[in-house]
Design a protein around this nucleic acid. Structure first.
Length: 860
RNA sequence: GCCCGGGUGGUGGAAUGGCAGACACAAGGGACUUAAAAUCCCUUUCCCUUCGGGGAGUGCGGGUUCGACUCCCGCCCCGGGCACCA
């Protein structure tokens, strides 16, 4: 027998919808405290919701419901990141506009989310594919364009012939992992000048309440480095290099240019030309990734040219090698093999000289020593510590006009166009007379046309180029004929600013009303997966700063606090390996990568822990594989939230996902664990209702709760309150379980005792809580009932138990009043018989009392 | 290679200088039942025990402290991110 979760959940979801319980007022009251709690909105894929989604969504929902009960004005919205490749693929396959499939998927997602009882203000729902939303995405792009932050260039890009699309550097890995080919190709592209904001994006990270790991990832991505540019003379020309170690200039024994460097042509000697050309051709054919993959073995070719080192007039050979990147610094380096790992490898391979110029600490080999030290073999600079040397030599270079201090970033400009149909069209026209002209703001949005063929063209022309009528336009400047830009924006565009639109989703005069923006921003808590650590979060911050500079938003950073939920893995699986040929079981640690094995699933009962691993009970020398894997269709270990809700109810799913462990941690799914929280909810239900009859429990009473009951209740209130604030949801649930375990043993259950308990349960299991609240005699929703306050009086105990240690080992306990003076506690401790046995015949050297916690007696 | 996390019973986890293993799962035993399910109660880190208790124990090795899962030093293993950025 189980509590009627299906009825209860349907009833309260209907109630919330009918009463618009979670509607956030449109008008803002600046005097009211606010809390903007945001989930990373999902891409509504055709597969529907998976169990990973409700993890973060439940966490934010608990916070939202809790804050409402604290009287805070809460903004808790949901929407759809609805542009995306799967819908476009569907359109290509069927010839139908991707819109249809997209909005069907949204309907599925919305139904599934409502089924889980999240307290979103659904009146604020937005989709990035809505015309009204696209309008403002395009508007923001125009602001970037007008500020010179969007430019067009013939760029070497990552072209995927399978996707017929250009990918951002950041996306290459992801798409390759999915099996798509990616190669280099030069194409006309729109690029956003994110590098202009590199310094601010880096500096403003410091004040954010984000996980340190995410901030660190962004810092690494931006990759700021300080150093110097130095001019070397080659054949009367200047070869400029970038180095972070100008102090090692005396140790430069050769130079390396990127194969693409324009100087290569002019310095290559006739004897070396053929070899150099061959190397350059080979390098050009490789993608960035292929170049990186050949890391193991350095390659390069001598150009025949020599460069003169400005600090000592030495002539050193100039090589080309693909370990030097054309896109970073000046595309050329001075090589200091003694103190740079890459240069060292290269010099070793090609027999180039290695000169020590940094003295490492005592006992460390100078060869390949890359850290700071003291200068040697550097003329008048000998003896200088690295840091000081850097400054002196940079000043010297600047004085002579042969170099300067320079800051560099790894961050590249953001390749912003895609040769796809299903994205925001660029609000730009190409006019033969006026060049690139923005579409006037009052003509936005530029809508996508209806088409019959959504395929991209194999030559890289976007599908929009086929929409001949759509492409034709009139230039707003000269009135002459113009053509529309046929590239579209990447999926990131819509997700860059959606958190702003939630504040004022139906505004048709501005993307957000400034007064409302000022009230609601920043987002107080942003929860989502760590996979967006760099891309989405960096792009959003960039756009936000541009909007800040435009005066559209009032502060420089959008997300005050960020939390990443940990991934939910499939169930723990025990696998026995058998030799495919003989059928003999093979120990997992004996298996090899190219061996052929039959894999057999074992149950927990068939295995036993042995040392670090698990063995097969039937044959204990056989080690089995024990691990939980990522959920995936191919592994067949995907848990469908619909099934869980059907079987156990939404409250159980919510509660289980919060009870599994700390929110931020990776954790394996356990069906048994779901049943565990389900049993807990059943027990809660039975405190109030007699399950068989549906009648109120005869144990309920109008009496005043006993001190013992109040104590248990207020301990729970305190723990749940603290834990919600710290997002330690698993221990909050544990505290409620402790209360319910105690309550089961009580003969009488005063309503005044259960009511506050139902309230603290409500953020976690809102449907059941509403039902019980109602059954306890309330007409209205509990969503805005004041959060129960802890009464410290009830937390006090008449006596407390003090553990007594002798030499740090627990030997006994004493019962005392909590405010007993130290002397009394120590006397009781010494009098304790179990303790005395360990004191006998020894000298008492020290007595330590930690008030209310414990006693330690040190004897010798 | 570098940078972050993390390592605690059979399992998920709790305890952030003061009783290691809360809470839950699994397992074992019992009650109820014609029986089963459901429910409820008990046991459950390991080893020894004369059943009073004793000893060991939070990846490994050291250290600090009256006291260390917690702090410090060195190492091993697992997960994630970055990876020729000069």
């Amino acid at each position: 027998m189980a509590y009627p979760h299906a009825d209860i959940e349907a009833r309260w979801q209907a109630y919330w919808e009918k009463h618009k319980t979670f509607r956030t007022p449109d008008e803002v009251d600046p005097t009211r405290e606010k809390f903007y709690v945001l989930d990373m909105f999902p891409y509504p894929s055709g597969d529907g919701l998976h169990v990973g989604h409700p993890e973060g969504y439940t966490a934010t929902d608990i916070l939202a419901r809790y804050q409402r009960m604290k009287g805070v004005n809460v903004l808790h919205p949901m929407g759809w990141d609805s542009f995306g490749l799967p819908a476009e693929q569907h359109a290509i396959n069927t010839g139908n506009h991707p819109k249809g499939k997209t909005y069907e998927n949204i309907d599925t997602f919305r139904r599934q989310l409502k089924m889980l009882g999240f307290s979103y203000d659904w009146d604020r729902e937005i989709a990035t594919t809505d015309d009204e939303y696209v309008r403002w995405t395009q508007w923001i792009f125009l602001q970037l364009f007008k500020r010179g932050l969007a430019y067009e260039g013939e760029m070497p890009v990552n072209w995927s012939p399978d996707l017929c699309a250009v990918l951002a550097n950041e996306e290459v890995e992801e798409q390759r992992a999915k099996g798509y080919r990616v190669e280099r190709r030069a194409m006309r592209q729109w690029v956003l000048k994110i590098t202009a904001y590199a310094e601010r994006l880096l500096a403003d990270l410091d004040d954010l309440d984000w996980p340190e790991s995410i901030k660190e990832m962004q810092r690494n991505w931006i990759g700021r480095s300080e150093g110097a540019e130095v001019d070397f003379a080659v054949n009367g020309e200047t070869l400029r290099v970038y180095t972070t170690r100008p102090d090692t200039l005396f140790g430069a024994t050769y130079m390396v240019l990127a194969p693409e460097h324009p100087l290569v042509d002019r310095i290559t000697t006739p004897e070396q030309r053929a070899e150099v050309e061959a190397y350059r051709t080979a390098a050009a054919a490789k993608s960035d990734l292929e170049r990186a993959e050949l890391t193991k073995e350095k390659t390069g070719v001598f150009t025949g040219g020599f460069a003169v080192n400005p600090v000592n007039g030495e002539s050193i050979p100039v090589w080309i090698a693909d370990y030097v990147l054309w896109g970073y610094g000046t595309g050329a380096i001075m090589a200091v093999p003694a103190h740079d790992t890459r240069d060292y490898e290269f010099a070793e391979k090609f027999g180039l000289p290695i000169i020590q110029v940094v003295e490492p600490p005592e006992g460390v080999d100078w060869r390949g020593y890359v850290d700071d030290g003291v200068a040697v073999n550097s003329g008048e600079y000998d003896g200088l510590p690295t840091e000081e040397f850097k400054q002196r030599i940079t000043a010297w270079l600047e004085e002579r006009g042969v170099g300067e201090a320079k800051v560099n970033y790894k961050l590249r400009d953001w390749l912003f166009s895609r040769q796809r149909f299903w994205g925001e069209p660029f609000p730009l026209l190409h006019c033969p007379k006026c060049g690139v002209v923005p579409v006037p703001e009052d003509e936005l949005p530029v809508r996508l046309p209806e088409m019959s063929d959504y395929r991209p063209t194999p030559d890289g022309q976007p599908p929009l180029a086929r929409a001949e009528e759509w492409v034709k336009a009139v230039c707003p400047k000269c009135g002459g004929p113009a053509t529309r830009e046929t590239n579209t924006m990447p999926q990131w565009a819509g997700s860059c600013w959606y958190y702003l639109r939630f504040i004022d989703p139906r505004n048709d005069r501005a993307l957000v009303d400034p007064e409302k923006e000022k009230y609601w921003m920043p987002v107080d808590l942003y929860v989502g997966g760590a996979e967006h650590a760099v891309l989405h979060l960096l792009y959003s911050r960039f756009w936000h700063k541009v909007l800040y500079d435009c005066g559209v938003v009032s502060m420089a950073e959008p997300f005050r606090k960020l939390v990443n939920q940990g991934m939910i893995l499939g169930e723990m699986e025990y696998t026995l390996f058998r030799d495919a040929a003989t059928g003999e079981p093979v120990s997992y640690d004996q298996t090899t990568a190219n061996g052929q094995y039959e894999q057999v699933r074992l149950t927990e009962a068939e295995v036993d822990k042995a040392g670090d691993g698990f063995v097969w009970k039937a044959q204990r020398e056989i080690v089995v594989k024990a691990r939980a894997d990522k959920m995936s269709k191919s592994r067949g270990n995907v848990i469908n939230p619909d099934h869980i809700v059907k079987e156990y109810g939404a409250d159980s799913l919510r509660l289980y996902e919060m009870f599994m462990g700390p929110l931020t941690q990776v954790k394996p799914w356990s069906m048994k664990g779901v049943e565990g929280v389900f049993r807990f909810l059943n027990r809660v239900y039975r405190l109030v209702v007699v399950e068989e009859t549906g009648e109120l429990s005869p144990r309920l009473s109008d009496e005043t709760p006993t001190p013992e009951q109040l104590h248990a209740l207020h301990v729970a209130i305190q723990k749940v309150t603290e834990d919600i604030e710290q997002m330690d949801f698993n221990t909050a649930i544990s505290a409620m379980m402790i209360f319910v375990n105690a309550a089961q043993g009580w003969e009488r259950l005063p309503k005044k005792l259960l009511e506050p308990f139902v309230l603290i349960l409500s953020p976690f299991a809102p449907h059941l809580a509403e039902e019980l609240w109602h059954r306890l005699g309330h007409e209205e929703t509990l969503a805005y009932e004041p959060w129960p306050a802890v009464n410290p009086e009830y937390l006090k105990r008449e006596t407390i138990e003090i553990p007594i240690q002798v030499n740090g080992r627990l030997r006994g306990r004493v019962q005392l009043a909590p405010d007993s003076p130290e002397a009394e506690v120590l006397a009781a401790a010494l009098a304790c018989p179990e303790v005395q046995a360990h004191l006998a015949g020894k000298e008492l050297k020290r007595k330590i009392y930690i008030p209310g916690r414990m006693v330690n007696l040190v004897v010798g």
